[in-house]
Amino acid sequence: MKQLQEILSAIGSWQAKGYQVIAPVRRDNLILLARIEDPSLINLDHILTVNTLKDFMLPRCETILRFDLEKACVEPGIDDSLPTIIFGSRPCDAAALSILDSILIGDVVDSRYAKRRGQTVVLTVACSRVDGACFCKSMGYGPHDPTGSDIILLPSQGGYLVRLISEKGRQFASDVGLEPDDAEADPEPELSRRVSTDGLKAWLDSNFEDPKWQVISENCVSCGTCYYLCPTCHCFDIADEAGISRGVRLRIWDCCSFSSFTKMASHQPRVGKYARYRQRVMHKFKYTVDNIGKVACVGDGRCIRYCPYGVDITEILKALVSGG
């Protein structure tokens, strides 16, 4: 077993080996995952950070290319990916990476994403606490689940046990001298929120048109909070920011709830808020299942926690499959 302090004090030596370290820090009233220089600022006293690992693997804004019409030249955006340690994210966020991997490093490979992932070691700190919005268990994960992590630290009697999960994790641990433990961890915290996905896929398969879609989306105001804070949502837009002759092409996040979504391909085919909300549910619980055999939800609960108008995905899933 290791004390947190021991692990934190090792982080400086990881940085010295050329790794950038991403970890939870406090910014005003928020706990955010951010690149840190000073390991003493790491804050692990949180349930979940507001932002997700998506911020670093599929950033909200990245330069794809630069162009200059006068010089008639186009050059690719600078590749700034560095060997990276993610320290202190939670199991649900790591699980989300495994889903993104299946999608973005599948038949078609998103080279930028793949490069960043290849250089990243995910060192998860498992949860000792959960809140009322967490429902990871219902999605097949859990507060101590290792899916997607390279190394996971499990809470045990006030300290942490190191478990090496992947080959990459073992490699990193031996590089930096992090010894695994096999002692028994504290029991997982209990989750109060549960939702069954039994029958959900079958219902979605045959109920694209159903009056329930209107009802369940009533409170939604079509903002992008749930998408932008979701660890698995990955739709993006391409935007040119240009002057008269020079500019850049950027990849930025986009969101299916916006009425302007997919307008670049002439129009938004989903007329009506309910149709856009349906897309969100269908994408997560049907299309992704059809394509990669996994649900694109890890039960992190951010969409429930941060929705300004109380839209609750677990309540909605229950309502969809219920008889009424």
């Binding site: 909200r60 105001v221 079509s222 903002c223 992008g224 909070t225 998408y227 932008y228 804070l229 930025i252 996040w253 969101c255 916006f258 009425s259 302007s260 307008k263 300004p308 108008y309």
Partner: peptide
């Protein structure tokens, strides 16, 4: 700011069919 436009969508007076941001 992540441009999720929650502020715009939550505002009772931001009702434009097409926002200048679009």
């Amino acid at each position: 700011c992540i441009k999720c436009y929650a502020c715009r969508q939550a505002c009772p007076l931001c009702y434009c069919e097409e926002c200048i941001t679009e």
